[in-house]
């Protein structure tokens, strides 16, 4: 089943199926339209953190992602890596800036 993912910052939206993570939905071919690049695409394994977003509204399933980029308390607030979540309803999301932590 396909769901509509709406990016609140830009108003852009794309379709994403249950079995696709959000980046796969975003990168689906759309006739006559440029490839949507609204979320940064990185490792696609929950490790690098470049596709960090906040889900404002909607249901999704999340696979394991690096706690360095998404600590548990952040995830409880709806912060996730787009490559690790699978929509279960329409979602509205916000794209977050790159998270480079100097240590």
């Amino acid at each position: 089943m396909k769901h509509t993912i709406t990016v609140v910052d830009t108003g852009e939206s794309f379709a994403c199926a249950d079995e696709q993570h959000l980046l796969q939905g975003m990168q689906t071919f759309r006739v006559g339209m440029a490839m949507l690049k609204v979320i940064n695409v990185g490792c696609r394994g929950g490790g690098c953190g470049v596709c960090r977003i906040r889900v404002h509204d909607g249901e999704y399933e999340a696979k394991k992602m690096s706690r360095k980029h998404i600590p548990e308390e952040d995830q409880a607030q709806g912060l996730v890596l787009a490559c690790r979540i699978y929509p279960k309803s329409d979602l509205s999301i916000e794209v977050l800036p790159l998270d480079i932590r100097k240590e």
Binding site: G42, C43, R44, G45, G46, G47, C48, S66
Partner: peptide
């Protein structure tokens, strides 16, 4: 390419 945890 990337491993399933995102390590290249």
């Amino acid at each position: 390419f990337f491993d399933p945890s995102g390590n290249r």
